[in-house]
Nucleic acid binder design. Structure first.
Length: 204
DNA sequence: GTGACGATAATCT
DNA sequence: GATTATCGTCACA
């Protein structure tokens, strides 16, 4: 791939976070590396995180870290966690609120070899053979495969460094399942995880 | 195939 | 000082 597909407009993210999460399934996330190489994949799993009303969300408390979730929709929220992992979100909310969609899994589409080398030996079966299922089947795997870190926190998802394009979505209703979120300790019962049910590329 | 556990540091209280 | 929107590895089945 030598050209990025057109980006979804900022208005795509200016609505309640649950709507955006549902609509992000089947869309494509792209990353252009400093070298000019483009990598990316189709979003098959994501989770909605709300504002002060959502105990499982970083924005439940308004702190320096969560401030970006209160800012303009359509920006990337990238945070560091567990001492070693990054997670990537799309800031989304209706006017005057806070929220973001955590991108949890991709079906790899472009630059699988580059992803595999950035992911390390966990993504290799036998030397030279890529386990594509292992490339992007989790939020921290995605950021590693696409070389996303806090340096990209706050940039728009409509630019060239990071972009979400329409892809093949939106996905039809029968293909979508909604479950409880993963790894969340408070507000764990909230059903806010959106998946393409028959995808082979979901997180654990 | 499943389940337990340690790694490791920013962020928050 | 405690917690954490995770992952890879190892034991076991």
């Amino acid at each position: 791939m030598k050209r990025l597909p057109a980006a979804l407009p900022r208005s795509f993210y200016r609505r309640p976070v649950a709507e955006t999460a549902r609509d992000l399934l089947g869309r494509d996330l792209w990353r252009m590396l400093p070298s000019g190489v483009i990598c990316g994949g189709r979003i098959v799993e994501c989770e909605a995180y709300g504002g002060p009303d959502d105990p499982g969300s970083h924005a439940f408390s308004r702190t320096p870290r969560s401030e970006i979730m209160y800012g303009p929709p359509g920006m990337a929220y990238v945070y560091f966690t567990y001492g070693m992992h990054y997670c990537a979100n799309a800031v989304s909310h209706a006017e005057g609120t806070a929220g973001a969609v955590l991108i949890r899994a991709l079906e790899p589409l472009e630059d699988l070899d580059g992803m595999a080398s950035r992911r390390g030996k966990a993504a290799i079966d036998t030397p030279g053979s890529i386990r594509s299922r292992a490339l992007c089947s989790g939020p921290a795997k995605i950021t590693q495969a696409l070389a996303i870190d806090v340096g990209l926190n706050g940039i728009p998802l409509t630019g060239t460094e990071l972009r979400i394009s329409p892809g093949t979505g939106p996905v039809s209703d029968p293909e979508v399942k909604i479950t409880t979120r993963i790894g969340v300790t408070s507000g764990a019962d909230r059903r806010a995880r959106y998946i393409v049910a028959d995808s082979d590329f979901l997180s654990r």
